[in-house]
Amino acid sequence: MAVLLSTKAQAMKAWRDALLAVDPTLDIRMFPDAGDPAGIEAAVVWTAHDMAELRRYPKLKLIVSMGAGVDHLLRPPGPPPGIPVARLVDRMLTTQMGEWVLLNVLRFHRQDPDYRAQQRDRVWRELPAPVTAERRIGILGLGELGTHAAGLLRGIGFPVMGWTRRPKAVEGVENLHGPDGLRAMAARSDILVCLLPLTPETRGIVDASLLGLMPRGGFVINGARGGHVVDADLLAALDGGHLAGAALDVFQPEPLPADHPYWSHPKVVMTPHAASITIPASAAPQVVDNLRRAREGRPLVNLVDFSAGY
């Protein structure tokens, strides 16, 4: 029985080599060269793969997302009924996202956009020193990524709040939850960081009403999914002067169209969905472990809860 890989062509070989390094006995096939559909027992896929295609494989036991998010796999028609889906919870993914969040929090906290503007204009002027303990950070989502980022920020002295749907205790992080908690946290967040999974309930969560609650001069950082942010509302908050800046790694759609206002906006810092990139060699042991569990009928790790959407 074989494992089907489906991702960008340039990444396919790295995934194949990483999986074979863990288990040299694996039969690896790279889409679209799947061979006999009845020979596929697991599919390791990323965003470009059509879920309808997986209905061709009658002996499929497992689908694995190559990233921490799975919203791309749950879009209609979704995975074949009854086939479990696992996501990656990988140390390297978590580390990279924490680095990206910390980079951008410090970028805004230490007034880097202002100093870069002064450099362009050849202006030598010292700005008032910021106080870390007075810069309040609000994190939307306290899963693996959000909890790790919160720890990094706390470690250098930022007061950190975290919002979740239901109460969740994270050491040193003030937890707010539910609709009232969301509004209360936004009103106190000088920098608002989105690390939520994308579900029907969280789509468009960063909208005009939420942004309007933030303190004037605040910043937004989105490393989750483009669908969390209502672009027109964020642009209006930036252009109107209510917000001072935004750091965005994810967009809707991707790649971002060349004529989109974000490209040239003076208050927007962009990266091309590169905040946290799966490293196959790091993720492969987890994938192989789940494959063995599926073969042996043992419980899977990091199984997606379809009712929750992640």
Results as ranks from 00 to 15, higher is better:
residue 159 P to R: 01
residue 99 E to T: 09
residue 96 Q to R: 07
residue 35 G to C: 09
residue 49 H to P: 05
residue 82 G to E: 11
residue 150 A to I: 00
residue 309 G to A: 06
residue 118 Q to L: 05
residue 9 A to V: 14
residue 31 F to A: 14
residue 248 L to F: 07
residue 283 A to V: 02
residue 106 L to M: 14
residue 242 H to Y: 02
residue 247 A to H: 06
residue 156 I to H: 06
residue 44 V to A: 04
residue 185 M to T: 03
residue 116 R to W: 12
residue 228 H to C: 08
residue 3 V to Y: 02
residue 116 R to N: 09
residue 188 R to D: 15
residue 294 A to H: 12
residue 45 V to D: 13
residue 134 E to C: 02
residue 47 T to F: 14
residue 224 A to I: 05
residue 230 V to A: 07
residue 77 P to K: 11
residue 41 E to A: 10
residue 4 L to T: 05
residue 21 A to M: 06
residue 122 R to H: 12
residue 182 L to P: 15
residue 197 P to V: 02
residue 60 L to C: 10
residue 124 W to F: 11
residue 41 E to W: 12
residue 255 P to D: 14
residue 34 A to P: 02
residue 70 V to M: 08
residue 287 V to T: 11
residue 105 V to N: 00
residue 237 A to T: 09
residue 48 A to C: 05
residue 179 P to K: 02
residue 196 L to I: 01
residue 84 P to Q: 10
residue 196 L to Q: 02
residue 29 R to M: 13
residue 109 H to Y: 15
residue 78 G to Y: 10
residue 47 T to W: 12
residue 13 K to D: 15
residue 233 D to C: 04
residue 126 E to D: 03
residue 252 Q to P: 00
residue 230 V to L: 02
residue 267 K to Y: 12
residue 263 W to M: 06
residue 265 H to L: 06
residue 137 I to F: 02
residue 121 D to H: 14
residue 94 T to I: 10
residue 282 S to Q: 05
residue 200 P to Y: 01
residue 250 V to D: 08
residue 58 P to Q: 11
residue 158 F to G: 01
residue 246 A to F: 03
residue 266 P to A: 08
residue 212 G to P: 04
residue 72 H to N: 13
residue 197 P to Y: 04
residue 47 T to M: 05
residue 204 G to C: 04
residue 59 K to S: 14
residue 128 P to T: 07
residue 84 P to H: 14
residue 266 P to Y: 11
residue 117 A to T: 13
residue 97 M to A: 00
residue 44 V to Y: 13
residue 204 G to R: 07
residue 272 P to D: 10
residue 162 G to R: 00
residue 37 P to T: 06
residue 86 A to E: 09
residue 120 R to N: 10
residue 298 R to K: 15
residue 290 N to C: 06
residue 53 E to Y: 14
residue 56 R to V: 07
residue 34 A to E: 15
residue 155 G to W: 00
residue 66 M to Q: 15
residue 285 P to G: 09
residue 17 D to F: 07
residue 194 C to F: 03
residue 83 I to G: 15
residue 93 L to Q: 11
residue 58 P to G: 13
residue 121 D to T: 05
residue 256 L to D: 14
residue 271 T to K: 06
residue 131 V to R: 13
residue 63 I to L: 15
residue 203 R to G: 11
residue 99 E to C: 05
residue 133 A to H: 09
residue 288 V to A: 03
residue 54 L to S: 06
residue 250 V to G: 05
residue 104 N to D: 00
residue 211 L to F: 01
residue 129 A to N: 02
residue 30 M to E: 15
residue 297 G to R: 04
residue 268 V to Y: 07
residue 162 G to C: 00
residue 119 Q to G: 08
residue 32 P to Y: 13
residue 256 L to T: 15
residue 180 D to I: 12
residue 88 L to E: 15
residue 141 G to P: 03
residue 62 L to E: 12
residue 8 K to G: 14
residue 149 A to Q: 05
residue 42 A to E: 07
residue 216 R to M: 01
residue 239 D to A: 10
residue 300 L to M: 10
residue 71 D to E: 14
residue 107 R to V: 08
residue 108 F to I: 01
residue 7 T to M: 14
